[in-house]
Design a protein around this nucleic acid. Structure first.
Lengths: 343, 343
DNA sequence: AAGATCTCTCAAAGCGCTTTGGATACCGCA
DNA sequence: TGCGGTATCCAAAGCGCTTTGAGAGATCTT
C-alpha cells in the first residue's frame, strides 16, 4: 500500500492525503479523520526513502564508534549512552545509524555522510585533545554535537561534558583531607580530552597541598579491567606504594580492587579507592549505599540530553550552539577511609 | 554534485555514468575510467535515499535492542557484538540502524520496518524461549537472522548459537570431577532461550551423577554485577553452602567473586568458580593465563558471522536458511580447584 | 554491398513521496 | 447580482537515482 493506492481508495488526491497525514492546515478535520482512519486500516505508512528524497531530511542520526584493529577495545559506555540517545530519537521519529570505523577512515566517513546524504547529523564520541574532526564537520557543514569537548577547537559548537577537572580535583581533595599523601592516578589515555582534564584536576588538588605529582604512581592506558589490575599491581609493588587510588572508570576499578585484595590489603582501610562512575546499568555501584566512593554522572542521561541538542540543531541550523557542563556528584562509599601508616 | 551535473560535465548521459559507476558491462572500459576519475575528482557519491528509492534496497540492517523502563539494563555484550557485525557491514556497503525499543512495541517496530521500507533485514537479539517475533518476521516477510535460537519456533530460519547446553554440561561435569557436589548455578533470566539451555546442561551433568538439583542454590536473574553479588551472598549464607559456582557471565562473576572474598573465602581453593566468557574487550579473562576457569566463545565473532549470514539472506532470499552451532571452549584458569571439606 | 550483429550510448519512465501554483465551490457583503 | 475572500482540494513538477527499450555507429557475414 502506497500513497497513490491509498488516495485512490479514498477517492482523494495524493496531495490531500499527504497533507492530512502530515497535519497541514489546508485540509478539513473531517477528511483528515477519514484519511487517518483509512491509513490505520490499511496499515499504510510512508516509505522512508521516498520521504527523505522528497524532503531532503533523512531523519537519521549517525553515531561513529572508533575501533582499531590493533586495540580491539569497544568502550563499554556506548551501550548505555546509545540507550539514552535512542530513547529520545524514538520519541522524535529519528533513527540511529551506528558505524564502526577505523580511526584513519573517519574523515572519509564524515565526507561520505555528507555527500551521500545519509544522515542529518552526527554525534561525535570520545573527542581527543587535538581533534580535527570538529573542524572537518564545520567545514563540510554537517550538523554535530560532541560528547565531551576538544580543547583544540575554538569555534563555537554544541557539546555536553562532565566537568572532569573539578570532579577529579574534588575527589583528590577528598583523599587528601583523609590524610592520604601518596595518591595514585589510574587514568584513561591522555590524548583523550576527558582524561587530560582529569589529570589536570588531580594535579590541581596535589599542587594546592604543595605535593609534587609522581609519575611512578600515575598511569595512562585504556580503561579495561586488566589494565586496572596491572597498573595497580605495579604501583603496590613500589618501595613507596600509594595509599589511595583515583580511578577513571568502574570497570578499571574492578581490576584495581582485584590487585589490592590479591595483595592481602583491605579496601577502605589499608587502601582507599575513589572511582569515576558512569552509572552503567550492568555495573551499578551498590544498591542503596555505594560500595565505592565515586564521582558520578550518568552516561545514559548524557545520551538523552545530547540527542535532544542534536535534534534541535538539525531542526534549526541557525540556532546558536548550546553547551552544557555537568557537575559530577561525589558520593561517599565504603572504599575510602583515613590514611593509616603501614607497619 | 549529483548524477545529472556529473553527466553533463562529462558530456555523457546519466545512464552511461550510472552504469559506469556501478560496473555494468554495457559501457566501454575507456569511458568507465573517465567517469570514475571524474567522480573522484568532483567528490561525487550517489545519494543513498535516491538510490534506495530507485532500487528498492536500503542497504540498511536493523538491530533491535529491547529495553524496558522498569529494568533499565542494557546488555553489556551489545557493544562487542555490534563491533563484529559493523565491521562486516562496512565491508559490504551496509549501514546498521540500531533501535531501542520497549518490549511491547517490538511488533509494531518490525511492521513499521516492513511497511516503511527502512531496512533490508534485521538481526534478532536475545530470543526468548517462547518468542513470537520469529513467526511475525516470517509472516511479514522481513529477512532476519537470530543470535541464539527460540525453542518454540519450528519453521527453518537462520540462526547462530553457542551450544549452551553442552557448554554448561561440560562445565558442571568439570566441577563434579573435581569432587564438588554442591554446585550453584547463577543463571540469567530463564525465559531467555540461552539461559534455559544452560540450566538444562547443568541439570544433565548433575543427573548423570545422580545428584538432585537444589533450587536453593540456583538463581535466575539479570546478569549484573550486583545480582551476582547478591545471589552468591545469599547462597554462601545457607546452612549447606555451595562449594562451587557456575556463573552465566563474566560481569556477574565479578559480583560472585566479591561475595566470596568478602566472606573471607579463597577463590580456587575454598570455592571454585566457572564462568561463561563472551570475550568482551574491556573485561578480558586474564592476559596469558585465564583467571577464571571459563567456557568461552567470542560474541564479537558471532556478530561477524551473523552479519555475513544476513547479508547472504538479503542478497539471495530464496537460499535455504543457514544454522551454525558453535561449541564453547572450556579453559582452565585458577578459579577452580578440588573439593575441600570445610571445617 | 547490403543485411545482420555487436558495441556503446541515450531519452524517458518510474521509484513514492512533498510541495507549488492553481482550480473549484461556497460564503458573506455591497 | 456580482465580487473578493476562505476553505478545500487537485494536477503536475521535482527530489536523484536506476533501468527499460531503442537508436546510432562500427564491425562482421555472405
Amino acid at each position: 500500500m502506497n500513497l497513490k493506492e491509498l488516495a485512490s481508495k479514498l477517492g482523494l488526491s495524493q496531495t490531500t492525503v499527504s497533507r492530512a497525514l502530515n497535519g497541514y492546515p489546508e485540509v478539513s478535520e473531517a477528511t483528515r479523520k477519514l484519511v487517518v482512519e483509512a491509513a490505520r486500516l490499511y496499515g499504510y505508512a510512508p516509505n522512508t526513502r521516498a520521504k527523505a528524497l522528497a524532503t531532503g531530511n533523512t531523519h537519521c542520526i549517525g553515531h561513529i564508534i572508533p575501533v582499531s584493529e590493533k586495540r580491539e577495545m569497544v568502550n563499554p559506555i556506548f551501550g548505555d549512552f546509545m540507550a539514552g540517545a535512542g530513547e529520545v530519537y524514538a520519541q522524535n521519529g529519528f533513527e540511529m545509524i551506528v558505524t564502526m570505523v577505523e580511526e584513519d577512515q573517519e574523515d572519509a566517513l564524515y565526507r561520505s555522510f555528507r555527500t551521500r546524504k545519509s544522515v542529518d547529523g552526527v554525534v561525535v564520541q570520545a573527542p581527543r585533545m587535538l581533534d580535527h574532526r570538529l573542524g572537518l564537520l564545520s567545514d563540510i557543514g554537517l550538523p554535530f554535537v560532541v560528547h565531551g569537548r576538544a580543547s583544540s577547537f575554538d569555534a563555537p559548537y554544541s557539546w555536553l561534558d562532565v566537568n572532569n577537572r573539578s570532579a577529579f580535583r574534588r575527589a583528590a581533595r577528598f583523599l587528601l583531607d583523609l590524610g592520604h599523601r601518596r595518591i595514585a592516578l589510574i587514568n584513561g589515555l591522555e590524548h583523550m580530552d576527558f582524561a587530560y582534564r582529569r589529570r589536570r584536576g588531580y594535579e590541581d588538588a596535589l599542587t594546592a597541598q604543595g605535593i609534587a605529582s609522581d609519575p611512578d604512581i600515575m598511569s595512562t592506558s585504556e580503561m579495561t579491567e586488566g589494565n586496572g589490575y596491572a597498573n595497580a599491581t605495579r604501583m603496590l609493588g613500589l618501595p613507596k606504594p600509594p595509599s589511595a587510588f583515583l580511578v577513571s572508570s568502574m570497570i578499571e576499578t574492578v581490576g584495581v580492587r582485584r590487585a589490592v585484595e590479591e595483595r592481602g590489603l583491605v579496601m577502605g582501610s589499608d587502601v582507599s579507592i575513589v572511582t569515576y562512575d558512569d552509572c552503567l546499568s550492568y555495573l551499578q555501584n551498590g544498591a542503596e549505599t555505594p560500595i565505592f566512593t565515586a564521582t558520578r554522572s550518568s552516561v545514559r542521561e548524557a545520551g538523552k540530553e545530547l540527542a535532544q541538542m542534536l535534534i534541535e540543531r538539525i531542526r534549526n541550523p541557525q540556532s546558536i550552539p548550546q553547551n552544557r557542563l555537568l557537575e559530577a556528584e561525589l558520593l561517599v562509599g565504603s572504599s575510602t577511609g583515613p590514611f593509616k601508616a603501614t607497619s
